[in-house]
Computed example of a mutant assay.
Amino acid sequence: MTSPDLPQGCTNFRLRRLTRMVSRHYDAHMAASGLKTTQYSLLTNVLARGPLRPTDLAQALNLDASTLTRNLKPLVQAGWLSQDEGADARSRLISITDAGREKRAEAQRLWRTAQNEMNALLGIERVHALHALVDENIAALQRAGLTDEEGDDTVAHRGAKA
């Protein structure tokens, strides 16, 4: 028998359901730019932090090196990011290109529309409360030693003003 004070149902299932719904909303808007939301986030983070070494970008986004390499590849191939020699022959620097800045600006307009629609759908107060609750819980889980395996996209999601 469960206590009436304990939450009922699976927290993981509820959060995954919510994130799938929100992701579909943003992805539908971002599709017009030809970017996935993860690619937009990478462009935004490189713009805000770069030029920088892949190791530093992976650390900033809390991604493992192979995931970062896989995610960077199509952006480099499209000419939106470049990987140039760093301080020595063994190091590389990732930077955003002019074409990448243009692509990011295009996607930013679409992201902003998606964000404004989400604000309207949920209400500004609810979005503020959701952000605060999510941030508080991320901090609590980090204090408990859990890490964010998929990356911290706060630079890209602070209003995408970078």
Rank of each mutant, 00 (worst) to 15 (best):
S3A: 15
P4I: 11
P7C: 10
Q8L: 12
Q8N: 06
G9K: 04
C10Y: 09
C10P: 01
T11I: 11
N12Y: 08
F13E: 15
F13G: 09
R14F: 09
R16S: 08
R16N: 03
R20I: 09
R20A: 06
M21H: 07
M21S: 12
M21A: 10
V22S: 08
V22I: 14
R24P: 02
H25Q: 14
Y26Q: 02
D27M: 01
D27A: 02
H29L: 06
M30D: 00
M30A: 14
A31C: 12
A31Y: 03
A32V: 10
A32G: 12
S33L: 03
S33C: 06
L35K: 02
L35D: 05
T37W: 09
T38I: 15
Q39G: 13
S41I: 07
L42P: 03
L42A: 05
L43W: 03
L43A: 15
L47S: 05
R49K: 04
R49V: 04
G50V: 08
G50N: 09
D56P: 00
D56Y: 01
L57E: 07
L57S: 08
A58Q: 14
Q59I: 03
A60K: 07
L61T: 11
L61R: 08
N62Y: 09
L63C: 09
L63I: 02
D64Y: 03
A65Q: 12
A65E: 13
A65R: 07
S66N: 06
S66V: 07
S66A: 05
S66I: 02
T67I: 12
L68W: 06
L68V: 11
T69G: 14
R70Q: 11
N71P: 01
N71S: 11
N71G: 01
N71T: 04
L72M: 13
L72C: 15
Q77Y: 01
A78V: 04
A78I: 07
A78C: 08
G79R: 01
G79D: 11
G79T: 06
W80M: 02
L81T: 15
L81E: 10
S82C: 05
Q83T: 07
Q83E: 14
Q83L: 14
D84L: 08
D84S: 10
S91G: 09
S91N: 07
I94W: 04
I94H: 04
I94R: 02
I94Y: 03
S95P: 00
T97M: 01
T97V: 01
D98A: 15
D98P: 02
D98S: 14
D98V: 13
A99W: 04
G100A: 12
G100Q: 12
R101D: 01
E102F: 04
E102R: 03
E102Q: 12
R104T: 01
R104D: 00
A105Q: 05
A105R: 13
E106C: 07
Q108R: 14
R109G: 12
R109Y: 05
L110C: 04
W111E: 00
A114D: 11
N116Y: 06
N116A: 10
N116I: 10
E117R: 08
E117L: 10
M118K: 02
N119H: 15
N119R: 14
